[in-house]
Nucleic acid binder design. Structure first.
Length: 563
RNA sequence: GCCCCCGUAGCUCAGUGGAUAGAGCAUAGGAUUCCUAAUCCUUGAGCGCAGGUUCGAUUCCUGCCGGGGGCACCA
């Protein structure tokens, strides 16, 4: 609808120029916006104000010329007369458009016709985008923070896809390096303890219950003689077993959170294939990597980082940074023009150095984007609930899903911008009642399903499949037109959400639509004595149902037929 | 000290270079012979402070103040 208005304005500018009403046909950057206040019309443009300098005329005068051209054109084609009820010039030079009610009715047809594709956009132009998220080390189960990253990453992937991007979702498995060795050692020490030895655990070891479970499982499978073998080999075996097992758990947790990845990428594979070494050699030959104090350093400082960073330590071990460089190079070589990483806010110091390596390799800095998800502040009954990974005292994502359910958890994680810290109160989220916004939106879907159930029982709709609206001209109530207006903006919201990489835009939209529907529902009966009107209203609410579903799908939340 | 995020209603948060800044919760009152009351209707109060850019700033820029997070040959 907004596009139609824009076209009318552009045509009128051209016409005005041809007729000598306007000195220039240049159109500066202007806005077609929906005014907050409905007394300012359905749409409003600031064209006259932003054109004052170009046209060398006062805004009021420009507006008058434009309106007169619109009217001339409208009379010629007869089209605008149908669409626009009146045009007003107001304030410092706003041109306000008031649309006729029937201008809105085709929106319902479009929704019913496009169905699951309604709201889809092609702004992505099929550009290849990779989004990598979660990527938690397989050294322990996923916790709440990972849950937020998972919900955000998955939703952004869905939204980008719906907006016409060619999206791949990937999980990077840190299955190499020190943390995995530490995991092996932790399990091994726990094994020794289980067999009766006095063990003092070093500070850097993991000590959650899951470590004990893993140790017991190994003991059960391998027997106690397992630990009498070579210490190094045994630890390595423990590490391998534990990482594999933990990763399996991570996959299961994500799966029950409704998340699947297109690709799982192993860090170890970068070493196995010699890629890491190759990248180090390559950058060394370009003198981007140099040797100092027995270590190899990357000149990240030349690219805006505050200091240079080590890629190979003086003991010969590579750092995570080394494999991360190789990994990101690999992404671009796979053909992604745009690479998005979703990280926890505590990793923000890492952005500059990865960006430096990307730029050093000749890519543009904007081809690498990081979404920093601010931390989740876990509360229980309004009081801070500290978690410490080392002590093993933390709330896992699985706990959350078990307590509040997948839908409520995902909706909660996406309810706010990830730029802000999120309070997640376990007691509050546990309540399966109206305090939880997810029910508010899902209820719309279920309510409408209920209406259709009744309509079928009463034999109103047995023969109608609603691939387009019925009797839409009967939809004239304020609440009905208002609902259609909101439905009409779904696509804009998808595009806005995709461009900003902000999934909560969809959340806010759904809450707005849900509120409008509940208000309508309480004021008007859909199923009435008047069969024709009933069909019109059924068409409308079916449109609402489809849009709610399309929105919820993007966020990874179910749209239930019944609650 | 440096870097990132935030500062909007009593609380938790949306939002916008424009004309009267929104929602939920909380508070107070009301609505169901009727498609799910997991709903709706009514009720008060707010853009941290100071400059700058602009015809116009809550929005953009700078500084300050306040809160959170990060600054290892850790990840």
């Amino acid at each position: 609808m907004k596009n139609k208005i824009q076209k009318i304005v552009l045509d009128a500018v051209q016409k005005g120029f041809e007729d000598g009403l306007l000195p220039s046909d240049h159109v500066p950057e202007m806005e077609i916006e929906e005014p907050r206040n409905s007394s300012h019309g359905d749409f409003s443009t600031n064209f006259a104000m932003v054109s004052a300098a170009i046209q060398k005329m006062p805004p009021g005068k420009i507006a008058q010329s434009l309106v007169s051209s619109i009217k001339t054109l409208g009379e010629a084609t007869g089209e605008e007369a149908n669409l626009i009820e009146k045009i007003e010039i107001a304030g410092p030079g706003f041109i306000n458009f008031f649309l006729s009610k029937k201008a809105w009715h085709p929106v319902v047809d479009r929704i019913l016709d496009q169905d699951k594709q309604y709201g889809a956009s092609d702004i992505g132009k099929n550009e290849k985008v990779q989004i990598e998220f979660v990527s938690a080390n397989p050294t322990g189960p996923l916790h709440v923070g990972h849950g937020r990253g998972a919900a955000v990453g998955d939703a952004i992937g869905n939204i980008l896809c719906f907006a016409g991007f060619n999206v791949q979702k990937e999980y990077y498995i840190n299955d190499s390096g020190r943390q995995i060795r530490t995991l092996g050692k932790s399990v091994w020490l726990k094994l020794l303890e289980e067999t009766g030895k006095e063990i003092e655990f070093p500070d850097d070891c993991y000590q959650g219950d899951y470590i004990k479970d893993l140790a017991c499982e190994i003991l059960e499978k391998e027997g106690s003689k397992f630990i009498q073998g070579d210490e190094k080999e045994t630890i390595a075996a423990c590490a391998k077993f534990a990482a594999k097992k933990i990763l399996k758990g991570i996959r299961e947790d994500l799966s029950s959170f409704g998340i699947t990845f297109d690709n799982w990428f192993s860090e170890q594979s970068l070493y196995d294939s010699g890629r890491v070494q190759k990248i180090i050699d390559e950058f060394t030959s370009k003198e981007l990597i140099y040797k100092k104090d027995g270590a190899l350093w990357f000149r990240t400082q030349d690219f805006g980082d505050e200091k240079n960073r080590v890629v190979v330590k003086n003991n010969g071990q590579t750092t995570y940074f080394a494999s991360d460089i190789a990994y990101h190079m690999e992404k671009y070589e796979r053909g992604f023009d745009r690479v998005i990483d979703v990280w926890g806010a505590d990793h923000h110091g890492y952005i500059k150095r990865i960006e430096a390596s990307v730029v050093a390799s000749g890519r543009k800095s904007k081809q690498f984007e990081v979404i920093l998800v601010q931390l989740v502040n876990l509360l229980r009954g309004g009081k801070p609930f500290q978690m410490s990974k080392r002590a093993g005292d933390f709330v896992t994502l699985k706990d959350i899903i078990d307590e509040v359910g997948k839908d409520a958890a995902r909706f909660m994680f996406l309810s706010r911008s990830y730029d802000s810290g999120l309070d997640f109160d376990l007691e509050l989220a546990k309540q399966k009642n109206s305090d939880n916004p997810v029910y508010y939106v899902q209820y719309v879907h279920a309510r409408i399903a209920g209406i259709f159930l009744k309509a079928k029982q009463e034999n109103i709709i047995q023969d109608i499949d609603f691939d387009k609206g019925e009797n839409l001209h009967l939809l004239i109530a304020v609440e009905e037109i208002n609902l259609i207006k909101i439905l009409d903006t779904f696509k804009e919201n998808v595009e806005k959400s995709a461009q900003a990489l902000h999934p909560h835009v969809i959340f806010t939209y759904l809450m707005t639509l849900a509120a409008a529907f509940h208000g309508y529902y309480n004021r008007h009966k859909v199923i009435t004595e008047d069969r024709e009107l009933t069909l019109a209203r059924l068409s409308l609410v079916l449109g609402v149902k489809k849009v709610i579903r399309n929105g919820l799908v993007l966020l990874g939340v179910n749209a239930p037929e019944r609650m």
